[in-house]
Design a protein around this nucleic acid. Structure first.
Length: 427
RNA sequence: GGAGGGGUGGCCGAGCGGACGAAGGCGCGGCGCUGGAAACGCCGUGUGCCCGAUUUCCGGGCACCGAGGGUUCGAAUCCCUCCCCCUCCGCCA
């Protein structure tokens, strides 16, 4: 959520910067600006009336205790109350609309974010590693996985429909190995491992920005009014919601493995094959809570921590800075990590690392007390470290050999009892 | 699912129609005491919003005692609905 005071004071600038994400958002800013003005007008009237009412009520009480009932005063009070009632109702309506709209305005992009419309305007920051050269036609990971008997898309669909997969044998073990490997790596870097609920209340999703705008993307358990988390970012970032942290506790580093559940509404036909886009996937997430002045430095470190996973696995990747049009709703600045995928002959997103500044913190009232005793909104950051399914896909494709076998990255072998190669079944 | 108990400030905990933004304690900050410290004494210490003069400091108002409604001139206190937590029983990985 944006600071309403910022919109009030720097309306033109906020409007201009929000418009870089899409003109439709600028219109929301306009409406909010107008509603805020109306709200304050009404609030002033209401509060003045209430002050009057409070004063007269006390007076009435005092008189009554002295045994003097004052009927004219009582009538006067009733009159004030009636006027007040109408004004209060209008104020409430205005406030509700204002709050709802405020929750639907995305974060202000950081001034350093490149202006652009979509992913084509993202800016490459650096590359690491060399895409492998094959002297044979490399296969896509879903073919490799099926031939190796470790991925079973057909039975995934049998159980749950499209965009679900079953992993078998070494496929299942590879997932477990990757999760443990990633958690261990981040643990070394000072991230505290957390295990979180996978079902959360609506307000938790409002806190991180998925609600109210992206209801359609979520799985919901209607009976219990709970949602399946689309990412561990949601419970992790909300852990300290409505708390006032101590300055010396910051920065906080958390990591968690969770499955992630997404309806993928509006992505019909995209990435229908393979592990790239599923309704349920596994991810190890990184979350930081920091002081405002440290958050951008922490973002760079967060990206480095995510990159380290790819480096240890020796997977070629590049770092991309998202442009304004491609930025997520809550993010002020985002770096994507894109891993090389031979079957696509291009880099594909495997991690997204964002600084949300105080956008989420304001929604969830996440603050810390400064040495001067002031309560200051924290900054929150999150990043994938990494998406497990996509990592598995990248390993299969980049480490494949002509015979269809796949070499296990060295860093992962200790997690698989020293296994060096996965071979097609029956060999 | 059944029965009971409870949600009050950073924390603990009292209050159960007006003098309550809320006793007391802990914690924290300042001062005193001390050679220094502990102990002790004194003072201060919630959050959000609005308005005003204003860099900051400040002053005024409104709201907040789980959430939302109601009763009342007046609600932390009474009534209703909902949410959450705890204990016991049942069921269960």
């Amino acid at each position: 959520m944006l600071d309403i005071k910022l919109i009030r004071k720097h309306y033109e600038e906020v409007r201009r910067r929000i418009a870089t994400r899409g003109e439709e958002y600028a219109k929301l800013v306009d409406r909010v600006y107008e509603l805020d003005r109306r709200k304050r007008e009404l609030q002033k009237e209401v509060e003045n009336l209430r002050a009057l009412l409070n004063r007269k009520s006390k007076e009435y009480g005092r008189l009554k205790r002295e045994g003097k009932e004052d009927e004219t005063l009582k009538e006067e009070l009733a009159k004030i109350k009636e006027t007040l009632k109408g004004l209060e109702e209008e104020l409430k309506r205005v406030e509700e609309e204002l709050n709802d709209l405020l929750l639907r305005i995305p974060n202000l992009p950081h001034p350093s974010v490149p202006i652009g419309e979509d992913e084509n305007d993202n800016v490459e920051v650096r590359r690491w590693g060399e895409p492998p050269k094959f002297d044979f036609e490399p296969k896509p990971h879903w073919e490799l996985g099926e031939r190796l008997g470790i991925l079973d898309f057909e039975r995934g669909a049998k159980l749950s429909g499209s965009r679900f997969v079953v992993k078998r044998g070494l496929g299942a073990r590879l997932v477990r190995a990757l999760i443990n490997f990633m958690l261990d790596l981040h643990g070394e870097r000072g991230y505290v491992e957390i295990y979180v609920p996978h079902l959360v209340k609506p307000e938790i999703l409002v806190g991180t920005g998925q609600l109210p705008k992206f209801e359609e993307d979520l799985f919901k358990c209607e009976r219990d009014n709970l949602y399946l988390i689309p990412t561990a970012e949601v419970p992790l970032t909300n852990l300290h919601r409505e708390e006032i942290l101590k300055e010396e506790d910051l920065p906080i580093y958390y990591t968690a493995y969770t499955p992630c559940y997404r309806r993928e509404a509006g992505s019909y036909g995209r990435d229908i094959k393979g592990l790239i886009r599923l309704h349920q996937f596994d991810k190890v997430e990184l979350v930081k809570i920091t002081k405002p002045e440290e958050s951008y430095e922490e973002l760079e470190k967060l990206v480095a921590d995510a990159e380290r996973v790819l480096q240890e696995l020796e997977l070629p990747y590049r770092v991309v800075e998202l442009c304004t049009g491609d930025l997520g709703f809550s993010a002020a600045k985002t770096y994507d990590l894109e891993v090389w995928m031979p079957s696509y002959n291009r880099y594909r997103e495997i991690s997204s690392c964002s600084n949300c500044e105080d956008f989420q913190a304001r929604r969830m009232k996440l603050r810390y007390k400064s040495k001067e005793g002031k309560n200051i909104l924290c900054h929150t950051l999150n990043g994938s470290g990494l998406a497990v399914g996509r990592t598995l896909a990248a390993i299969l494709e980049n480490y494949q050999q002509e015979d269809g076998s796949v070499v296990i990255p060295k860093a992962l072998r200790p997690y698989l009892g020293g296994l060096e190669v996965i071979k097609p079944q029956g060999e």
